[in-house]
C-alpha cells in the first residue's frame, strides 16, 4: 500500500510538471469548447429534438478527449517508460505489475476526470450548457467512458512495440473513430453502409452514452451503449494485464 501511494503521488506530480500532458488533459478540451461555443452559441440543433448545440456537443468533446488520452497519451507515456528502461529499473524492486498499473491508472483517470470537470464548467458557465440528466448518471457515464479508453491505452501499450508505432496506430485509429463517432458529422446523414461500420466504433457508443446521460435519456434507452463501452473496457483490460511487459 505504501508503494502504491508513493508511486501514485509521484506520478501525479510528474504529470503536472509535464506541459504536454497538462495541455492535452486539462487545457485542450476547454479550449475546444470555447471555440465551438463562440462559433455556434447555444443555437438549437434541428436534427436533435431541439437540444441546444452546446448540450449536444459538450458530451461528445468529453468522449473525444477520453479517446485521445487512450490512443495517444497513455501508450506514449507507458512505452516511453519501457523504452528508456524506467520500467526495467522498477522491475528490479519488489514492485508488482498490478500495483504499478493501479497507481498509473489512478493518476491518468484523475487527470481525465479533472479535464472533464473543466470542460463541463466552461460549457455550463461560459456558454449556457444545461444538463438535464441526473449528476450521478453523468458521472457514471463519464467514469465508464474514461476507464474504457484508458484500458484501450494500456492494451495498446502492451501490444505495440515502440512509442513511434503508437503515433502511427493512434492516428490510423483516431481518424475513422472520430469521423464515425457522431461527434463531428451527424451519422444520420450518412449512407447505411457507413452507419453499419460505425456500429463497431466504441467512440460512437461513448459519445451516445455521454450525450444521453447529459440530456437525461432513460438508462433503458442506452443499454447497447453501456454494453459496448463495458465490452471495450473488459477486452482492453484483459489484454493490458495479460500482455504487460516491463521491458522491450
Amino acid at each position: 500500500m505504501r508503494a502504491f501511494r508513493s508511486l501514485a503521488w509521484l506520478f501525479a506530480k510528474l504529470a503536472l510538471r509535464d506541459p504536454t500532458s497538462v495541455f492535452f488533459s486539462l487545457a485542450l478540451a476547454p479550449a475546444l469548447v470555447v471555440l465551438f461555443g463562440l462559433a455556434f452559441r447555444d443555437a438549437p440543433v434541428a436534427l436533435q429534438n431541439g437540444i441546444g448545440a452546446m448540450d449536444h456537443q459538450l458530451p461528445a468533446i468529453a468522449a473525444w478527449v477520453f479517446a485521445m488520452t487512450g490512443l495517444f497519451t497513455v501508450p506514449i507515456t507507458v512505452l516511453t517508460r519501457r523504452e528508456t528502461g524506467t520500467l526495467r529499473r522498477l522491475q528490479a524492486t519488489p514492485l508488482r505489475p498490478a500495483t504499478y498499473l493501479a497507481a498509473d491508472v489512478l493518476v491518468q483517470l484523475t487527470q481525465a476526470l479533472a479535464g472533464l470537470g473543466l470542460l463541463f464548467a466552461v460549457g455550463v458557465i461560459g456558454f449556457g450548457a444545461r444538463p438535464t440528466g441526473a449528476p450521478v448518471s453523468i458521472l457514471a457515464a463519464a467514469l465508464l467512458g474514461a476507464l474504457a479508453f484508458l484500458a484501450l491505452g494500456y492494451s495498446l501499450a502492451a501490444v505495440l512495440p515502440s512509442s513511434r508505432s503508437t503515433l502511427i496506430v493512434g492516428n490510423l485509429l483516431a481518424v475513422p473513430m472520430l469521423f464515425l463517432s457522431g461527434a463531428t458529422a451527424p451519422l444520420e446523414v450518412m449512407p447505411q453502409g457507413v452507419r453499419d461500420v460505425a456500429a463497431f466504433n466504441p467512440l460512437l457508443h461513448a459519445v451516445t452514452l455521454l450525450r444521453g446521460a447529459w440530456n437525461g435519456e432513460p438508462c433503458s434507452s442506452l443499454v447497447i451503449e453501456v454494453a459496448a463501452v463495458v465490452a471495450l473496457f473488459v477486452a482492453a483490460a484483459l489484454v493490458a494485464v495479460a500482455r504487460f511487459r516491463w521491458e522491450v
Binding site: L10, L14, T86
Partner: peptide, 8 residues
Amino acid sequence: TAALPERI
C-alpha cells in the same frame, strides 16, 4: 541500462 521517469 536504466532510467527514471521524466522530470523526477
